[in-house]
Amino acid sequence: MAGMSPSERRLQKELMSLVKEPPPGVTVHADLVEKNLLQWIINMEGASGTLYEGESFQLQFKFSNKYPFDSPEVTFVGSNIPVHPHVYSNGHICLSILTDDWSPALSVQAVCLSIVSMLSSCKEKKRPPDNAFYVKTCSKNPKKTKWWYHDDSV
């Protein structure tokens, strides 16, 4: 681990623990991550007994060299973006821990668990009401969006 910056050292530790003890339904593409520690691709299975059972999704994490002081940029990528009231069709996720409520004590694993639980508590598959407008006007980086967090029920 010599020659690594503090953020790289932390990411390396997180990667090892995620490979060793992944949360249920979560797998990390470790070989991809080892090529570039600052960009991760994570596979997520919809939990059984939920609306997303049998579906699988891909999450992209991008980290800055100020991680964990800066939150990671987390979006759904790939062909299957979950239909959920807090997930835009471009993959952007409206989740407060990804911006305003981020803490350096959180981790990739904590974010994954939070997203699994957000999906699991969904009662009706639908896009956010402002999806079309948001997707047309938003920045590529969801962290640049001024999110309004107002619905904690799903």
Binding site: P6, R9, R10, K13, E14, P68, P104, A105
Partner: peptide
């Protein structure tokens, strides 16, 4: 406290 949760060291 065994580990600093910020740097995870």
């Amino acid at each position: 406290a065994r580990e600093c949760v910020i740097c995870m060291v």
